[in-house]
């Protein structure tokens, strides 16, 4: 069943003509290109937003999870497989969420209950996710088959009709993209304005103080880890449901960059969003250079490094650690230190 490729600009002949007219640097500095870049920025940012917002909530409670990328891969595969089998992207999204939550329970058990070192455990989770998702893919699927994707929201509002608005590509994204952007204020509200958020911040800054007032650090951290991992799973699912296909290591390090974005965003939801958008903007601009033939051959290959370089440079510039939870990576136990 052919699926309308809502975001693919080179898929039909009209778009190909437009592209031909835009080739080169002169084509880059046009309004059309700007719309293309902005639209793809919004799309590309989604997996980063889910994973990084989730990770920022867990980190606010004092838990670092370097295994985000592994959880995303598992979530991505689960979403792909379930969508393939049932034909419904919503079921796929649910599967990504569920797998993420399960990984959250596992990671919380390892780090909170068993007091294991967080950074090493996180790397273990990543390697597990990387290997296991590939194993499952080979065993259960083998050759990649395209799957059903979410339709643009316009299809929800006015099915079977074209909505007449300027630059529909800027708005006509899948529902999951809107959910990602909705998540940002929701995360802010939870962390800053609720009693649960207060518990999260206390557990991340001074778990002994929280404990001495009867706040359960264990329960708080379990909850935030499960939320964080569930969102990582959703991030992976969003990636697959956007691409409509699955392959080995499909995230290609998105989860690690998401962890970096938490630092970049100074543990604030809005900062994390800004980081995700900046990163995606650079990525999509570089993609556009290649599409427009500005960069070819080895130069085009080298540009794949640009986003990673940007991340490192940004993190070096943003060295202020204001906002870093004091108890980040510290395990908590009442009687352990006697």
């Amino acid at each position: 069943m052919p699926v309308e490729l809502a975001f693919d600009f080179v898929s039909n002949s009209a778009a190909a003509d437009v592209l031909a007219a835009r080739r080169g640097w002169s084509g880059f500095f046009t309004f059309t290109t700007l719309v293309v870049i902005l639209s793809s920025t919004i799309r590309l940012a989604v997996p980063y937003i889910f994973a990084a917002i989730g990770e920022s909530i867990a980190q606010r409670s004092g838990v670092l999870n370097l295994g985000v990328d592994g959880v995303m891969l598992l979530g991505a595969f689960a979403a792909y497989y379930v969508t393939l089998e049932t034909g419904g992207p919503w079921q796929g999204l649910g599967a990504g969420l569920t797998v993420g939550m399960a990984m959250g329970v596992l990671y919380a058990f390892i780090t909170v209950t068993l007091h294991a070192t967080q950074d090493i455990s996180g790397i273990g989770i990543y390697l597990f996710g990387l290997g296991f998702s590939d194993l499952l893919f080979r065993q259960l699927v083998g050759t990649p088959i395209p799957i059903e994707r979410f339709e643009g929201v316009f299809e929800f509002i006015v099915p079977d009709e074209r909505l007449d608005v300027p630059y529909p590509n800027l708005y006509n994204h899948s529902i999951i993209i809107y959910l990602a952007f909705l998540l940002v204020p929701l995360a802010w509200l939870t962390v800053s304005k609720t009693t649960f958020g207060l518990n999260i911040r206390a557990a991340g800054e001074n778990p002994e103080a929280a404990d001495s007032l009867g706040v359960s650090v264990v329960r708080t951290r379990y909850t935030t880890i499960i939320i964080g991992n569930a969102l990582a799973g959703v991030g992976g699912a969003a990636l697959v449901l956007d691409k409509g296909i699955y392959f080995q290591n499909i995230t290609n390090g998105i989860g690690f960059i998401a962890v970096a974005l938490v630092y970049f965003g100074a543990w604030r939801p809005l900062g994390v969003l800004a980081g995700s958008l900046l990163f995606s903007l650079v990525t999509s601009a570089v993609l556009e250079w290649r599409t427009l033939g500005i960069l070819t051959g080895a130069a085009a290959q080298l540009t794949e490094m640009v986003p990673a370089v940007i991340t490192v440079v940004a993190l070096v510039i943003v060295t202020r650690r204001i906002g870093q939870p004091s108890a980040l990576t510290q395990t908590f136990s009442r009687e352990i230190n006697y």
Binding site: L198, N199, A202, E205, N206, A209, A210, L213, V215
Partner: peptide, 16 residues
Amino acid sequence: FMLVPTLTVAENVSLG
């Protein structure tokens, strides 16, 4: 002291 430095007095008191 069992206080969270990055929270306000009122937030510390109401914790838990």
